[in-house]
Structures are given as C-alpha cells and as structure tokens.
Computed example of a mutant assay.
Amino acid sequence: MRILFLLFTITLSSTQSVADTGSTGPGQILDAARLFLDGFRDEQANQSFRVEYSLGSLDPRLNLAPCPDGMDVAFSGDPWRSTQPSLLVSCGGDRPWRMYLSASMEIHGDALVAARPLARGDRVQANMIRRQPVVVNAVRRGAITDQRQLLGMELKRPVNTGTPFTPDLVVVPDAVSRGDHVMIIATNGAFSVTSRGKALANARVGEQVMVENLASSRRIRGRVVGPGQVEIAM
C-alpha cells in the first residue's frame, strides 16, 4: 500500500479554493467540495482507479461568514479505508470557520487476491495471486494493489480463494531460523572477517539475534542483514 499511501498524502496536501465575496451558503460549500473530489477522481484515474462519489446534503438556511480568499477542502480521514469519508471545509481570514461534510465514495480498481486456498506460513509467489476488480476502499484494512509489496511475504493465517490480500495478512518472513547455519560477518570499518555460526533464535532482516560461533563455541549477538547472514561489530 505504499504507493496508495503516497497518493493519499499528495491529495490531502492539495486543497482546492473557491473564492466568494459575499456570505457563504450551502451552494458555495458544495461547489468547493465537488471541485476537490473531481480533482481527486482525476488524479486516481491516472493510476487506473475509477472514483464514484456523492455528497451529503446541507441545511439550505446555512449562512456562514464570507470567504474572500477561498475555502480549503481536505479529507478528514483516509479515503482508501472508508466508503463514507468526511470532508473538512474551512475558511481563514478575519472570521474563520470550519465544518464537516459527509460523502459517499467508491474507489474501483484491481486488487490482488488469492488464486487458490493458501495456508498459514506460505510464502507468497506469483502463481498464488491474481488480479480482480474490487471496491478498494471497501476492503477492511486496505487492499494490496502492488505485487511488489506482496511477493516473498509470509502469510499470517490461512486464506480462501478470492480473498483480497491486505497488509495485516502478511509479514516479512524470518531471514534466519533457530538452528540454521549462518554466516557471521565481523566488521570494523572497511575490514571484515567471516566465520560460520548457528542461529539460536528466529529473526527477520534488521533484527538482533544470538548466534554461536561454530569454531570457538562463543555466543554473540548480531544483526541480521540478509538470509543466513548475521553482522557483528568488532
């Protein structure tokens, strides 16, 4: 979801403004919201997503202070995680105000789903996944749409055919397991020495793990830098 999150961040930082020299009524507020959502829709169309939305209603008697510098509109939450996002509409100036406007929105696009039943502990390979049209923001915890974020990951629990892959379903697999023979890399600046060892626990890349040097039987703690590779500082 890294790419999706980046798009979401860019969208929130890009506000749309609609200038008005008189008082601000529901028509102007809805126009500003539509302008913002149309921009979001066009932005996602460039990424092959189709956005459909509708806005909630406002009291026709609403009469707010004028907003000569234009209204700012932004999502108040992550639109990729909800089909009912709220919009925060605000106005600065001498008489500032802010209000929330409800909306309904569906983001249609291809997500990655299980091509067949998979078991806990399986490492995801290309033949285990397929693309399928879904309402992306209706998938709890967010659907994974980029295959690069999924391949090689380990399943945390079993899934059925057609289940969308979500970030909470997968985890980075252990790079070393208890009892594995590993390469111990002792470094001191540009100088390094390698020796063979045995992992005394499971660990992922970047984590600390205890290893036993097979030549000296000495136990030391190092950082996992790759599959079967543990680095220690001399």
Rank of each mutant, 00 (worst) to 15 (best):
M1E: 13
M1F: 13
M1K: 13
F5Q: 14
F5Y: 10
F5C: 05
L6T: 14
L7H: 14
L7Y: 14
F8H: 09
S14I: 14
T15E: 11
S17C: 06
G25W: 00
G25C: 03
P26S: 12
P26K: 05
P26I: 06
I29T: 07
R34T: 13
F36D: 01
F40S: 01
D42Y: 07
E43S: 15
A45Y: 05
F49N: 07
E52Y: 08
L55H: 07
L55R: 11
D59Y: 04
P66K: 05
V73H: 01
V73N: 00
A74T: 12
P79F: 15
T83A: 12
Q84M: 13
P85E: 10
L87F: 03
S90T: 02
G93Y: 00
R95V: 07
R95P: 00
R98F: 04
S102Y: 06
S104D: 14
A115D: 10
R116N: 05
L118E: 01
A119D: 11
G121C: 10
I129G: 00
Q132N: 04
N137K: 04
R141F: 05
A143F: 07
D146V: 06
Q149M: 05
Q149N: 00
L151W: 03
M153I: 02
E154I: 02
P158S: 01
P158D: 02
D168K: 04
V172L: 07
D174L: 05
V182T: 10
V182D: 05
I184G: 03
I185V: 15
G189F: 09
G189V: 08
V193H: 13
S195T: 15
K198F: 07
A199W: 08
A201Y: 03
A201C: 08
V205W: 04
G206E: 06
M210N: 12
E212T: 14
S217Q: 15
V224Q: 08
G226I: 10
G226N: 14
P227Y: 08
P227A: 12
Q229E: 09
